[in-house]
């Protein structure tokens, strides 16, 4: 079990010594039980950091935002930035490093292991506590205890843990400068790609029937894209592919620019958007599950992403987020890549 005070002490120490200019972490949420991301810049603020099963957010996104801030304001960093990172956050950082988004020495990773837990799925919790929004949650090694207006309630770990945490094999952030908690790499709560395998048992017609409903529902709010640390492009290819907007660009020219995908949220455009996104995340998605968590219309986006992840692993022996130095999935090949599908 991790003592949250260790995380706070580390953060305070790093800030006090000037070894980092800020520490990205989680603090208690302003509404309900869920923690929220925060950036701590002063040593005395370090005690506001928390670590509990509601630290859903993949903080690598804050790292991306910090990088964008620096680039856009043309500032150079005075010192590295610290970040509290659980297993999936750290894997996302590894992919960002693999893609040279920043340098390893620009980041100080304070790793936190999920050990034998993971994060909660709020939807699952709500179903168990009869609609009372919990205000706090903790994990005791087997069960989650949540506080609600009706008092405390113990919930079995497996029942309310996020699906991706149940399938997670790497709850420990291997890439770290310092880490807390036990390395439980290889733990197995649920078969890997279990949900994927269940879905794939459907026939083609049933699969399309399912996805058609999902694509029809999408409102193209782009929350999935906004929350994803891998979607760090300033301009997404689905918005525009060719045109550079300059001061002299007219409104008509902007309107006429070619987009791969039309703005309107209709099935064909939504389907193309989600499939493009899945392909662009192939070999890069670390299955942090944030896209699925933030989707306001409950599209099971993890299915698309884990499908690509399993192909990467099984067809190409590629382990997303495992090493900083290796080539990216689609920029490389092996002589014996599968090719039976080609005539």
């Amino acid at each position: 079990m991790i003592n949250v005070q260790d995380i706070r002490d580390t953060a305070r120490d790093l800030l006090a010594k000037g070894e980092v200019r800020a520490v990205i972490g989680w603090r208690a949420g302003s509404r309900g039980m869920a923690a929220e991301p925060c950036v701590v810049t002063k040593p005395e603020e370090a005690d506001s950091l928390v670590w509990d099963p509601t630290c859903y957010h993949n903080l690598a996104l804050q790292l991306v935002n910090d990088r964008k801030d620096l680039v856009h304001s043309k500032k150079t960093a005075t010192a590295p930035i610290g970040i509290v990172a659980k297993g999936c956050d750290a894997r996302a950082i590894v992919v960002l490093l693999q893609e040279h988004y920043f340098k390893r020495e620009d980041v100080y990773i304070i790793g936190v292991s999920c050990e034998n837990s993971g994060v909660l799925d709020e939807r699952k919790v709500k179903a168990q506590v009869g609609g009372f929004a919990p205000s706090a949650a903790a994990f005791d090694g087997d069960n989650f205890s949540v506080k609600t207006a009706k008092g405390d309630k113990k919930l079995a770990g497996r029942e309310v843990m996020a699906d991706r945490c149940l399938e997670c094999r790497t709850p420990f952030p291997k890439e770290n400068n310092t880490a807390f908690g036990d390395d439980k790499t290889g733990r197995e709560f649920d078969a890997q790609f279990a949900a994927l395998a269940r879905f794939e048992a459907n026939d083609e017609a049933a699969r399309w029937e399912f996805w058609q409903r999902q694509f029809d529902r999408c409102i193209r709010c782009f929350a999935c894209r906004s929350v994803c640390p891998m979607c760090f492009c300033d301009e997404c290819v689905v918005d525009s592919i060719e045109m550079k907007i300059a001061p002299e660009t007219t409104a008509e020219e902007k309107a006429n620019r070619i987009r791969w995908i039309e703005r309107s949220a209709v099935r064909s455009e939504n389907a193309t958007y989600h499939m493009t996104r899945a392909l662009h995340l192939a070999g890069r998605c670390v299955d942090c599950g944030e896209c699925e968590r933030v989707c306001p219309v409950n599209i099971p986006l993890r299915l698309l992403n884990t499908k690509m992840e399993r192909e990467a692993r099984e067809a190409f022996g590629f382990d997303p987020g495992a090493s900083i130095g290796g080539p990216s999935l689609v920029a490389s090949f092996r002589d014996d890549d599968p090719g039976e599908f080609i005539r």
Binding site: M308, S332, D337, G339
Partner: peptide
């Protein structure tokens, strides 16, 4: 070689969402 890997992913994804396997072909 690069095409083979990339387009394998496309083929898999199309089938996954329920597009008929024979709509996309490579030779």
């Amino acid at each position: 070689y690069l095409a083979r890997r990339k387009l394998h992913l496309v083929k898999e994804l199309l089938q996954f969402v329920g597009i008929e396997e024979n709509r996309f072909r490579m030779s």
